[in-house]
Design a protein around this nucleic acid. Sequence first.
DNA 1: GCACTGCACG
DNA 2: CGTGCAGTGC
Lengths: 391, 391
Amino acid sequence: MLEAKLNEAALLKRLLDAVKELVTDANFDCNEEGITLQAMDNSHVALVAVKLKADGFQKYRCDRPIPLGVNLGSLTKVLKCAKDDDICTLKAADDADILSLTYQAKNQDRIAEYEMKLMDIDADTLGIPDTEYDASVTMPSGEFARIVRDLSLLGESVRIEVSKEGIRFVSDGEAANGNILLKQNAEAAKKGKKGSSSKRKGSDDEDDEDEEKPDPEDEEGAAGSDEEVSGGEGGKKKVKKEKVKKEEKDGEDVEMANGADEADEDEDAGEFKPSKKEAGSDAEEEDDDEEEGGSGKKRKKAPGKSGKPAKKAKKGEADADADDDFEGVRIEMNQAVTLTFSLKYLVNFSKSSALSKKVQLMMSNDVPLLVSYGFNQGHIRYYLAPKIGDD
Amino acid sequence: MLEAKLNEAALLKRLLDAVKELVTDANFDCNEEGITLQAMDNSHVALVAVKLKADGFQKYRCDRPIPLGVNLGSLTKVLKCAKDDDICTLKAADDADILSLTYQAKNQDRIAEYEMKLMDIDADTLGIPDTEYDASVTMPSGEFARIVRDLSLLGESVRIEVSKEGIRFVSDGEAANGNILLKQNAEAAKKGKKGSSSKRKGSDDEDDEDEEKPDPEDEEGAAGSDEEVSGGEGGKKKVKKEKVKKEEKDGEDVEMANGADEADEDEDAGEFKPSKKEAGSDAEEEDDDEEEGGSGKKRKKAPGKSGKPAKKAKKGEADADADDDFEGVRIEMNQAVTLTFSLKYLVNFSKSSALSKKVQLMMSNDVPLLVSYGFNQGHIRYYLAPKIGDD
DNA sequence: GCACTGCACG
DNA sequence: CGTGCAGTGC
């Protein structure tokens, strides 16, 4: 039985607005740790991962893992019936094919109940490769949205170049070329709000639950992250373990083609290859890593990139952006990275701006880009394989 | 070499929004006086003329005349990448086939550079007949836009009747007829802000550079109008010289079919006939008038209509609307005029409302309507031949 | 290939 | 609420 009480329906509404264009149906996987959703987009090029932590709810109870197969269009409609500040309670029986949503006005004088049919969705939930990234850029989410929207007018893809200079977005189109350079704000380097100098790690990614160790300084560290990061706080915030394990889900992991860490299939950059749980062979690849959670770093297969001293990534905070009021651009990198991506997807990702004032881009050469928006209760992350060649 | 720095990208953005639906490609003709664009619409029924004065730029330099052949769709896209208040710099080498646009945030923390391919456009730039108009109506641009949009729902064309009574827009549609009468505001007559009674002329048209004589009382008189109008200030503001010469452009003038002044080809009301510069014969027609600028009145070919004592038209002001805060409808006329126009085009013209709070309609029987929006740095004008008969 | 309708964004 | 863009149908 699931019962999850959310203080503001707005969060769910925004999440669905962000995801519904990318995916039509998906499982909301509920377990005692919270609710996660993972899905590939319809053309299997991008991957979305949403996490809502149990302790972010006003009340949360989930006796045993339940996958709620939802048509996102339907859920969006139902959520439109909620006011932004309604208290929203989700309920489902263990065996249910129905999800109940209750909207309760804060002033108690209105209660609305909706019931939505659930569906059986083939869980092509996936194991997300645990990757270390060579570059992490944190910037205002609105700015990111604006840039990719702008460049999408000119061409199909954007080359993102991260260097000491800053981050540059370049698009070559038929009729026009464009390039936008954002320099790292000077203050970004010294803004050691969380202790170590520029290492504030300032990411919205609060690292997946099993890999990070809660960082006390972090506001959201309290949110119950139980994963440990590789380096001490000194290093650049490189995500040590981006591989999201298929927690509680056994055997359903899918291999991301570009997740270079486990298998060096960098050539697959063009598209993720989700393996259904039924595809035992593929699943195995990831499964071995699945169960270990406590000790961080597991699964860091691409050690070469982690050469730099990883600082104690103070990730762990879903609300990196929430707590970090720094307005500018922060870049943390071990080496320069240049990658090319489809703008169509980035534009889509950038719809999540409503969820966070900041966005974090994590990149390594030949590895899928991670675009991460963190908020108090969790995060939404997108993975997008780079284009190969430089088309 | 051209380098033009505009303090607000918004101006260019609005200009392109206004023009791009009418014309797909056009030359931006740059010379030391500024930048002009003249083009017929795709079906050669309407004509647009845009002027941006050199002194309206924060910085302007143009060593020698350069025509920049631009695809307006592409330029629109590139301009969408600018924020309204970005400082926008246009650059082009003399021989260039590339236009560079740089957007600089006012706060300096972002610099975006775009390069757009230019094209060779057959300069069917045209000489715009210098017409005296029998009636001039200045009204809020939003009101004009609303009226033509409304009437376009009912029918294809509108009959515009200007009389002492006011200005009336009449549309007869299949299912319904409509007519809207705007009376001249009483105050318009006495609002002798500039000296003579209602003659404030309040037009957005600041008359092309060489034809007007600056009128001291006019706020925008300073804008450098050097033409004199026929009558003394007492008369109605009739535009004495609407013929836009092809400044700096030699031989490229085209004759507007309906420009009745030179040749009395009123029968051509249906469509403009642009003559390429190659068409030497046509060009000559207008060229003779081209060079005289200082002494007003030149080129007043249709004296018959100027029978009334034309008041000193205080045109010359590009920012007629800018300086004229008068909110109502002002009519200045020598004789009643009734003309019928295609609403489709008027609706299109009215997209320029973003550029000016006021619009000026200039009409004479059987002559193309001039719809003029003035702003601080210049103007945008549209010419539309009347429908013949009363269909 | 063009036009119309629906969806999404500002 | 209005405008623009994309997808579908004719």
